[in-house]
């Protein structure tokens, strides 16, 4: 789970993808979600998944991107497992084509993960919040979002220190059954929550001392402006989106099982 979260954290790199306007990248992530949502056959979904690999390369994040996909495998297996089980329970698990459809669902999930991971790996939380702000989302919401992301590593570090401090007082975290173990996390959770609340209060006071909310119309140090490459990327995503809808309504996709069979000669 931790490496899945890690794969969603921003990575500072010097790449074309990093320089793109965050709004365009957000549009890309949402567009891919819609595209994957409307399709349910293996072939188009597989194309969507593979088509993102060059983008990850363009953003110089291939390794982390691949790690995110790998980290999502347990969830993928869960999707496949539950679907297979309930299809079998209904008695409709009759042939391999149904299995292919079930696998397609898992690939659809991977497409979601893949596009969002490309988005989050190449877009800093500050950029994202700026994008939301300039799209008209109220500033306090953007700030909340940004602060939540920024304090996550602080909380992680604090959780580690607290664990160490309690272990130094003889707490053994991985002893006993699941319920006993869960109970042992109380001495860690309470200081963590209390500190988070205390910090939120003092941060709120510090921000009010610095005139938070004094003016209704906030100006921004950085103003997002779309450049040529942004328009180009936007058009490409829009084109893919239209093509995806066109393909959904006017094309009929073959199953890939017969293709694999004939290729292997069985």
């Amino acid at each position: 789970m931790s490496s899945l979260l890690e794969g969603l954290a921003f990575q500072k790199r010097d790449s074309l993808l990093h320089k793109l306007d965050p709004r365009v990248k957000l549009f890309y992530a949402l567009a891919v979600m819609v595209m994957a949502g409307v399709h349910n056959k293996m072939l188009p979904l597989l194309v969507m998944l593979l088509a993102q690999a060059p983008l990850a390369a363009l953003g110089k994040i291939v390794r982390l991107w691949a790690r995110t996909l790998k980290a999502s495998l347990p969830l993928v297996l869960l999707i496949i497992g539950t679907n297979l089980f309930f299809t079998w329970l209904r008695g409709s698990l009759t042939d391999l084509y149904i299995v292919e459809d079930i696998l397609a669902l898992a690939v659809r999930f991977l497409v979601f993960v893949a596009s969002f991971s490309i988005f989050t790996l190449t877009t800093s939380p500050d950029d994202l919040s700026l994008a939301l702000e300039q799209m008209g989302v109220p500033y306090s919401f953007c700030f909340m979002f940004r602060a939540a992301l920024r304090f996550t590593p602080v909380m992680v570090r604090e959780a580690r220190t607290t664990m160490d401090a309690q272990r130094a007082r003889g707490l053994e975290l991985d002893k006993g059954g699941p319920i006993a173990r869960a109970r042992r996390y109380i001495p860690i959770l309470i200081p963590l929550i209390v500190n988070a609340i205390t910090r939120a209060w003092s941060m709120a006071e510090a921000m009010e001392s610095r005139a938070w909310g004094a003016s209704r119309k906030r100006t921004s140090l950085y103003v997002l402006r779309l450049r040529g490459r942004d328009y180009l990327a936007f058009s490409a995503v829009l084109f893919s989106l239209i093509m995806a809808f066109y393909a959904k309504f006017y094309l009929k996709f073959p199953y890939i099982i017969p293709i694999i069979r004939s290729a292997l000669g069985i």
């Binding site: 607290t162 309690q166 130094a168 007082r169 003889g170 109380i186 001495p187 200081p191 500190n195 205390t198």
Partner: peptide, 20 residues
């Protein structure tokens, strides 16, 4: 850590990290 702590008692810097 529990066995060693019986002999080596470590008091952390920030009490807010442990009082609950």
């Amino acid at each position: 850590v529990a066995e060693l702590s019986r002999k080596v008692g470590l008091v952390f810097q920030n009490p807010d990290h442990q009082l609950f």
